[in-house]
Design a binder for these strands. Structure first.
Length: 418
RNA sequence: GGAGAGGUGGCCGAGCUGGUUUAAGGCGUACGCCUGCUAAGCGUAUGUAGGGGUAACUCUACCGAGGGUUCGAAUCCCUCCUUCUCCGCCA
């Protein structure tokens, strides 16, 4: 949600920002509705004042046994007029709120304008592996342990099932990543894997992503599409002290995505599935420090890939590729040797105060004074299926065996998977 | 799933036989006083949002959410959400 003051002061800026994100919004309608709301509110407040005064008079007169019929009649009259105006305002409020919930966050000034093609590669790390044989895609390397047909029988197409070493590898990766985060001072969270509409609205999956989420209609719950939802909502409607900031959290969750309309596009194997596992990092930060924090989270996430020895590159997303709620976002992509392409394994975003406004997440300044909105950030650290793709495809050897990086060899009890 | 009890300002907590409560009191916090130092004590201030005024100040709304009754609702009624206790069911 954007600051109403900003909407009034610079509607043009909001409209341009939405345009840069390819979101269609009707700013003019908002401006008209907002101004008529204020006109009506003026009258309402005046009438309420009159009614309060009359009520007080009724109270005093009755107390002293006087007749208050005149005041009661007058007050009733005022009340009738009020009802009409209040109905009008609540109607306007409803449409204002609806519009405001659909206004996307404004990209930071340093975000390139344009679509995907304007994403900027900021830096890369590691050497793209060269093989003296033709490297295989992961679905061939993992034939015995990755069984989409089985998952399809159980849950439907585009769900995945791991068995044997793949299942163990995923479990160990999750565990290793969480240890990596907690060693740097993050608190580990185990949160619900479902969330209600208010939570989804606070982090801004709703209203826009409604069709991309699984919904349990009977209980009015959604399966979470990312750990960002429950972990950020841990602090919804909370007031923190300035000294509590930053709050640094991490946690494992599955992520459920309907991926409506994305069939047939890069969805072979583990590339794009309905349920995947992810370790998420969430940070609540002081507004003045969120830019710095964004870099820290990015470097921290990239550090994992260096320990795993996986080549990666970092993109600064252009406005058209930014999510609805983000002001700025870095993607980390790892190399997939078998498919010869880059895969997004992490998306690290700064939402500034956008989610905090929607979820009413504030802190009280240490010198006293009015509560202010915090800034929220999050980043994958990391998404499992694509990480496994890169590990397996990049580590493959001519005989089909897979060489593991030392940090995993230790946990898996072997240096090579055969 | 059944029965019962709650949800009040940063926190605790009174009010809940409708009208001097536009929410008492306490804690916490800030400033000041006092005090060899510290602690204690004393005084003052201190919810959020929106509107008006150069300013002192003032108006309006908010007591889980939404509806209703009433001249007037934290207070009465209805629906929903949520917490706790007991019972049932169950990993």
């Amino acid at each position: 949600m954007l600051d109403r003051k900003l909407l009034r002061k610079d509607p043009q800026k909001v409209a341009e920002a939405a345009n840069a994100k390819n979101e269609k919004i009707n700013m003019d309608t908002w401006v008209v509705a907002d101004s008529s709301r204020r006109t009506v509110m003026l009258e309402i407040e005046d009438l309420r004042n009159q009614r309060n005064t009359l009520s007080k008079a009724v109270s005093l007169k009755k107390r002293s046994g006087e007749n208050a019929d005149y005041e009661v009649a007058k007050s009733r009259e005022t009340g009738l007029r009020l009802t009409t105006l209040e109905d009008k305002v609540s109607e306007i409020d409803k449409s204002l709120a609806e519009m405001e919930m659909s206004f996307p966050n404004i990209p930071d000034p340093d975000v390139p304008v344009g679509g995907e093609e304007n994403n900027v590669v900021l830096r890369s790390w590691g050497e793209i592996p060269v093989f003296n044989f033709k490297p295989k895609p992961h679905w061939e390397l993992m034939e015995d342990v990755f069984q989409p047909e089985a998952a399809g029988r159980i849950a439907g197409s585009n769900f995945i099932l791991f068995r044997g070493w793949a299942a163990k590898l995923q479990r160990n990766l999750i565990s290793w990543m969480l240890d990596y985060h907690t060693q740097s001072g993050m608190e580990e969270i185990w949160a619900p894997f479902v969330a209600k509409a208010e939570s989804m609205t606070a982090t801004a999956q709703l209203p826009k992503m409604e069709d991309d989420m699984y919904k349990i209609g009977r209980d009015n719950l959604y399966l979470i599409p990312t750990g960002e939802v429950p972990i950020t909502n841990l602090y919804r409607d909370q007031l923190l002290e300035e000294a509590d900031l930053p709050v640094r959290l991490c946690g494992y969750t599955p992520c459920f995505r309907r991926e409506a309309g994305s069939y047939g596009k890069d969805n072979r194997g583990l590339n794009r599935v309905h349920q995947f596992e992810k370790v998420e990092m969430v940070r609540l930060e002081h507004p003045e420090r969120s830019e710095e924090a964004h870099q820290e989270i990015l470097d921290h996430a990239a550090g994992m890939l260096e320990l795993l020895g996986i080549p990666y590159r970092i993109l600064l997303l252009a406005s058209g590729d930014l999510s609805f709620a983000a002001a700025k976002c870095y993607d980390i992509e790892t190399w997939s040797a078998g498919q010869e392409k880059w895969l997004e394994v992490s998306s690290i975003s700064n939402f500034r105060d956008f989610q905090a406004r929607r979820g009413n997440m504030r802190y009280r300044p240490s010198g006293g004074g009015k509560p202010k909105f915090i800034h929220t950030l999050n980043g994958s650290g990391l998404a499992l299926p694509r990480l496994i793709i890169s590990l397996v495809e990049n580590g493959q050897q001519e005989d089909g065996s897979i060489k593991l990086p030392p940090v995993l060899a230790e946990r898996m009890g072997t240096e090579v998977i055969r």
